[in-house]
C-alpha cells in the first residue's frame, strides 16, 4: 500500500478510526489495561498522549531526514527516537508545571508514563515505515493520539458500568478488559470502508 500518497486529512481520520493504534496494532496496551479504570484519569492520560505523540512525531521527522539520513546513521534511529521522546516528555512536564498548576495536578502523574508507552514509540516507527510527509506525520501523530485516547476513555466508561456486572472470577480484571477491547476492535472495523486509501 502506498501510504505516502494519502493526504494528511485522510491520515488523520484513518489514524483515529480505521487504523486505531490500540485496537488494530495493540500498542499501548499496558497503560490501557492499568489506567482505564476511571474516566477522569483516562481523559488526562489521553490528552497527554495526544500532545506528546504530535510533538514527538513532529520532532523525530526532521531529525531523521535532516540529520540521521545524510550522516548514514539510520541504525542509531531507535536510540535517538527514544531520547527525543524522553526529552520532550520532560519538557512538556516542565512547561505544564510552570504554566498551569491545576493542569499539572491532573496530568502530572501520567506524563512520565508516556515515555515508555508503546503507542508513542510505535507511531514514530510507523511514520518512517509508511514514509509519510512531514504534514502526514504530524497528522498521524495527532490522529493516533486521539484514537488512543478515544479507545481508553470508552474503555474506562465501559469498565465503570462493568463494576456492577457479574463477571466470572477468572475473567475479572485483565480478562474482561481484553474481551471488551476485542469487541471494540470489531466495532471499529465497521469504519474500515470510510477511507479508501487507508
Amino acid at each position: 500500500m502506498n501510504w505516502s500518497a494519502v493526504g494528511p486529512a485522510a491520515v488523520f481520520f484513518g489514524a483515529i478510526f480505521t487504523n486505531n493504534i490500540l485496537l488494530t496494532n495493540y500498542l499501548g496496551m499496558c497503560s490501557f489495561l492499568a489506567i482505564s479504570r476511571e474516566v477522569k484519569s483516562s481523559l488526562g492520560l489521553g490528552a497527554a498522549v495526544v500532545f506528546v505523540m504530535g510533538m514527538t512525531n513532529a520532532l523525530n521527522w526532521p531529525i531523521h531526514y535532516f540529520i540521521l539520513v545524510p550522516l548514514k546513521l539510520e541504525y542509531l534511529g531507535f536510540i535517538v527516537y527514544i531520547i527525543v521522546i524522553a526529552a520532550s516528555v520532560q519538557l512538556v512536564e516542565m512547561v505544564v508545571e510552570r504554566v498551569s498548576e491545576s493542569l499539572y495536578q491532573n496530568l502530572g502523574i501520567f506524563l512520565p508514563l508516556i515515555t515508555v508507552n508503546c503507542a508513542v514509540f510505535g507511531a514514530v516507527l510507523f511514520m518512517f515505515i509508511r514514509k509519510y510527509t512531514f504534514l502526514g506525520s504530524l497528522a498521524f501523530g495527532l490522529g493516533g493520539g486521539l484514537g488512543w485516547a478515544l479507545a481508553i476513555v470508552a474503555m474506562a466508561g465501559l469498565r465503570a458500568k462493568m463494576a456492577r456486572a457479574r463477571v466470572p472470577r477468572g475473567l475479572e480484571g485483565a480478562g474482561i478488559a481484553l474481551i471488551i477491547a476485542g469487541i471494540m476492535s470489531l466495532a471499529f472495523m465497521g469504519f474500515s470502508g470510510m477511507i479508501p486509501a487507508a
Binding site: T24, Y26, P168, I176, I179, G182
Partner: peptide, 22 residues
Amino acid sequence: VMPSGAFFLLAVFIWVVKGAIL
C-alpha cells in the same frame, strides 16, 4: 486473522489459567 481474534484468545487463555489458579 483480524485484530479482535487475538484479544479474545488471550482473554480465554487468561481465564483458563486464572481459573486453574483459583
